[in-house]
Simulated assay, not measured.
Amino acid sequence: MDTQTMLRTAIVLLAVTAVGGLLMAGMRFSGRPHPPSFLAMVHGLLAASGLTLILYAGLTSGLPGGAWGGLVLLLLAVLGGLVLNLRYHWERRELPIGLMLGHAGLAVVGFVVLAISGWNVGGA
């Protein structure tokens, strides 16, 4: 599989991950203290799958500079997601909205940077 295909596949995986994130955020903003565990797990697994594919592509074939930048932002978002999961969700505590918004903001910016770079690889 070439770099372009790997990046585009990862971008699609991350887009599906974002839909799950929006669903969970909607639940939190509607008054639920945290989403169902299965939804949080699927969100994390899809994100990890996409990021693993990006890392594999980058380490085996190389990535454009913008894709590396997007990956760094997404990895920072992962740290926020880990805190949300392990410190709050796992302990059945109310998810802090500020941390959720920071996690989402980093993820969105990282995703956009990655998507722009990934779709421009190979000129197609």
Rank of each mutant, 00 (worst) to 15 (best):
M1V: 03
M1F: 07
M1K: 03
T3D: 02
T3Y: 04
Q4F: 04
M6A: 12
L7E: 04
T9C: 11
V12Y: 14
L13I: 14
L13W: 08
T17R: 09
T17L: 03
T17D: 13
G20V: 03
L22N: 06
L23A: 15
G26V: 00
M27S: 13
R28A: 14
R28F: 05
R28S: 08
S30E: 12
G31K: 10
R32I: 02
P33C: 11
H34I: 06
H34A: 08
H34N: 08
P35A: 14
P35H: 10
S37W: 06
S37L: 13
F38S: 06
F38Y: 12
L39Y: 00
A40H: 09
H43V: 06
H43L: 12
L45N: 02
A48P: 00
A48R: 00
S49H: 01
G50N: 05
G50H: 08
G50E: 06
L51W: 12
L53N: 03
L53P: 06
L53D: 01
I54M: 09
L55N: 02
A57Y: 04
G58S: 02
L59P: 04
T60H: 11
T60L: 09
P64E: 05
P64I: 06
G69C: 11
L71R: 03
V72C: 11
V72H: 12
L73A: 15
L75G: 10
L76N: 04
L76Y: 04
V78K: 10
L79E: 00
G80P: 06
N85H: 07
L86M: 12
R87D: 11
H89D: 11
H89E: 11
W90H: 15
R92H: 14
R93D: 00
E94S: 11
L95M: 15
I97W: 15
I97S: 12
G98I: 00
G102S: 08
H103L: 13
A104F: 15
A104N: 07
G105W: 14
G105K: 14
G105R: 13
L106P: 10
A107M: 12
A107H: 14
A107T: 12
V108A: 14
G110P: 07
F111R: 03
V112M: 01
V112A: 04
V112R: 02
V112G: 03
V113H: 09
L114A: 04
I116M: 08
S117V: 06
G118Y: 01
V121P: 07
G122K: 15
G122D: 11
A124Q: 13
